[in-house]
Simulated scan of single mutants.
Amino acid sequence: MTIHHTKGIVLRSVKYGETSVIVTIYTELFGVQSYIVNGVRSSSKKGSGKANMFQPASLLDMQVYHNDLKNLQRIREFSWAFMYQHIFFDVMKNAAALFMVELLQKTLKQPEANPDLYHFIEDAFLHLDEAKGQAIGNFPLFFALHLATMYGFRLNDDFTSETPYLDLQEGEFTKDHPVHPHFLDMPYSYITSQLLKVMQPQELNEIPLNQETRRKLLQAFQAFYVLHVPDFGTLKTLPVLQEVLG
């Protein structure tokens, strides 16, 4: 079986047997894949340290065996692709990262490569790790909006004073009050337009938002995903994130 070198972002890790884990990883080369990793949960310090590398949001460098006919692959070697300075220890950044991971779990379905999407996601976690001030609280909003763009059901940023309603169902700003309940009006529609204009995450520091505004926008963006992603459900990390950002 061929060995491939790929980077990957850990999405989920489940204990398996006495010492193993089954991990779901979004890889640069193969999209979403599941791997069985043996011997990383032994009682020795060596084992437990390795298990930490498979916590959600970890960025790994891997040598993997890949067989298109198998649902469960194996990892030959793994190491940190990047060692976060803050995400695993800072409460706010960790809550934001886990929200981002859950959003990915619910939307990344295909086991196929998409290098642009992979690099966008990797870049987002690296920027979150470095983020300061307002940017930390705004990061989940930025990520949710721009991830949708990568998937192809983006919100069209055509906000003007004449089109103050954001129709989440149609994905566009309109002049008329929508007849359904899935919309945002001022000031939330305007703020969404400002977030859509952000090209570099550090620009998020220039959008000061309070707790109530973030809460309203996060709920609305979840509704947007529910409307556009089949079987999306609800985000379990959302109440935790809102509590921490409060």
Rank of each mutant, 00 (worst) to 15 (best):
H180N: 09
Y190E: 12
Y165W: 13
R76L: 01
N38S: 12
L69F: 11
D157V: 03
K175R: 11
K93D: 01
R215G: 06
G152P: 15
L209N: 10
R74V: 00
L235P: 05
I191A: 05
F232I: 08
F54P: 00
L141K: 12
M100N: 10
H119C: 00
Y190W: 05
Q73P: 13
L195Q: 09
S58D: 01
R12S: 13
I25V: 15
I9Y: 09
H5T: 15
D185G: 12
I121C: 08
Y165R: 13
D157G: 05
E130V: 06
S58C: 11
D61Q: 12
S20D: 15
H127G: 02
S161K: 10
S42V: 02
A124Q: 02
A51L: 12
E212N: 14
E243L: 13
E203A: 13
I136T: 07
G39Q: 00
M1C: 09
L238P: 12
M150A: 08
Q63N: 13
K15T: 09
E130R: 15
V179H: 12
Q202T: 03
T107P: 02
E203F: 07
L104R: 05
V10M: 03
T149L: 07
H180L: 10
V23T: 05
M150R: 15
A51P: 09
Y118R: 09
L147I: 06
V14K: 05
Y84V: 07
P111K: 08
D61M: 04
V179Q: 14
I9P: 12
Q169V: 11
S42G: 14
Q194W: 01
M83W: 03
F125Y: 08
L155H: 09
Y16Q: 09
F54L: 04
Q134S: 09
V23R: 00
Q222S: 04
L217S: 12
E243P: 03
L166S: 08
V37Q: 00
L196W: 03
M92S: 15
K109D: 13
G47M: 10
K15G: 13
T174W: 07
F153G: 04
K106I: 03
F82D: 08
I9D: 02
E28V: 02
G133P: 09
Q194Y: 02
Q73A: 15
V23Y: 00
P239I: 05
G246H: 15
L155K: 05
H5S: 15
T6E: 01
A131K: 10
M199D: 10
V37N: 00
F78G: 00
K175P: 10
P178E: 06
R215H: 14
G133T: 08
D167P: 05
L69D: 08
H86E: 02
N71V: 02
Y84L: 06
Q200T: 07
L227F: 06
D68M: 04
K236Y: 09
M53S: 07
